[in-house]
Design a binder for these strands. Structure first.
Lengths: 101, 101
DNA sequence: CAGTTATATAACCGTCAAGGCATGTACGGG
DNA sequence: CCCGTACATGCCTTGACGGTTATATAACTG
């Protein structure tokens, strides 16, 4: 991975942007309006998200439309997988315990 | 959530600690040895992980044994869920495309 | 209970990243 | 073409965070 996907997600504002984009594509201006943040700040976060592969942009007239890209989310899911196995073991143990009682 | 679980995971050293603990419980000294980091640094990371619920500790003689706790991992998985739906839609679209060809 | 081992905390420092303002750039409309 | 709109970039300040050294606390050991 070129940049650290999890570190990118650590920023709450960036997660808010992703939540917005999960619902629909958005222009930068749209995001500025809904996030109540300065336009440069939003653009900078979008740059970080873009370089980490979380979003892509296309130019539509004088607007830039941003959309989600699934790749890094899948990478995060893959990172989580071994831990998921762990908590499934916990669940199994709990089930066995419940069956015994 | 009291603390931001994703921000806690943003630190590479903390992820290394979690990777170690995924394999087995470890004392602080064990972690210091395998991570090649000062003992205070490790203790501070463990404190952050503890307060975020990623690990718990028990006292065994003069050692403190740390172990993973699944809770925050499950929370992260839950956060990821709506995005997982998104990339599954992508997969569905890809499958339809392949069927058509 | 004095010394030693294992871990936690304190104080300090350097770095880095997020935000604001000012400015640059690109694109369209008149 | 030139102006206005939409967005990006540069610069600066500030606050949060990770690391180190030094010190405090806790628990076993003889």
């Amino acid at each position: 991975m070129p940049v650290d996907a999890i570190a990118v997600l650590a920023e709450p504002t960036r997660r808010r942007i992703l939540d917005e984009l999960r619902l629909a594509e958005r222009s930068v201006g749209d995001l500025v309006a809904t996030l109540d943040l300065s336009q440069p700040a939003v653009s900078k976060h979008l740059k970080v998200l873009r370089e980490a592969g979380f979003v892509s942009s296309r130019t539509a007239a004088q607007h830039r439309i941003y959309r989600l890209e699934p790749g890094p989310f899948r990478a995060l899911d893959a990172w989580l997988a071994p831990y998921r196995r762990m908590w499934n073991r916990h669940l199994d143990a709990l089930e066995r315990h419940l069956e015994e009682s």
